[in-house]
């Protein structure tokens, strides 16, 4: 099922709530190639977060398939835990573990899952913290950190698993404006380093500058997609033009 550099392929994914009364996704198709940075944009309620959360099965699709390296994650027989390790996820509200120090937040999963020894995991965590300039926060608890620091540490926590793809669910939406920049800078760094990324975002500047491909969601499915230039400078559908006129 795998072709070349394809990491994720979404086929005909739908998601319904309340027995079909609410249709969040109405038939999504999408591929993610290695090294790609994909920005998913769209109005709120268009299903962009739902689609992203389906990629690592935090949201179970009502129908359709999600292939990760050719393995269908929507198949109940698949061990999701093995595949989720390879898909880092960053949340709008950070979701750091408040009862663990920064260091423990980062090393918990790799050590528990025996991917690294405690010493190796801590060395790796220290290196990552140093890279984002927060080495001195290793033994702090999350409630001592600013929103921007929390989100950067949440990104580091995901990176510590050495994922093949990073999923970002509106990573700057809960931040005070003056902290958005530091998080976007880190994400830009990751993109430059060749990380495969899928980013649900309201930051059009970031989408335009960093993404290789922009997907505009409407009515629960990708409505228009293309290069940032095509999407932002030559929108085809009225819906996208309308959306851009409101957010730009």
């Amino acid at each position: 099922m795998e072709t070349g550099n394809e990491i994720i392929r979404v086929e005909g994914v739908t998601k319904e709530y309340n027995g079909g009364a609410v249709k969040a996704l109405t038939g999504c198709n999408l591929t993610v190639q290695k090294g790609e940075v994909i920005a998913i944009i769209g109005a709120s309620g268009s299903g962009k977060s739902t689609l992203l959360r389906c990629l690592n099965m935090l949201e179970e699709p009502t129908s359709g398939h999600i292939y990760f390296h050719g393995v269908d994650l929507a198949d109940p027989k698949v061990d999701l835990n093995l595949h989720r390790r390879k898909m880092g996820m960053v949340f709008q509200h950070f979701n750091l573990f408040p009862h663990k120090t920064v260091m423990q937040n980062i090393t918990l999963a790799p050590v528990f899952l025996k991917l690294k020894t405690k010493a190796d995991a801590e060395a790796k965590a220290s290196q990552l913290l140093k890279r984002i300039g927060l080495a001195d926060k290793a033994n702090e608890y999350p409630n001592m950190l600013s929103g921007g620091q929390k989100q950067r540490i949440a990104i580091v926590r995901a990176l510590a698993m050495e994922p093949e793809v990073m999923l970002f669910d509106e990573p700057t939406s809960a931040l005070d404006p003056e902290m958005v920049g530091e998080v976007l800078d880190l994400m830009r760094d990751l993109a430059r380093g060749g990380m495969t990324m899928v980013v649900v975002t309201h930051e059009m500047g970031f989408a335009r500058e960093v993404a290789n491909r922009v997907i505009f969601m409407g009515d629960g499915k990708p409505m228009e997609e293309g290069t940032p230039d095509a999407i932002f400078n030559h929108p085809q559908s009225d819906r996208l033009r309308d959306f851009l006129s409101k957010v730009l």
Binding site: L58, H93, L96, F112, R157, A158
Partner: peptide
């Protein structure tokens, strides 16, 4: 917060370790 479980599961932790190491310590308090 359900986000705590989601964060733990997204790191690849199975359901019970996520419950035991992340959710329960916060619930007990």
């Amino acid at each position: 917060d359900i986000g705590q479980t989601e964060a733990a599961r997204s790191l690849g932790l199975p359901a019970w370790p996520a419950m035991r190491m992340v959710v329960l310590p916060q619930a007990i308090k």
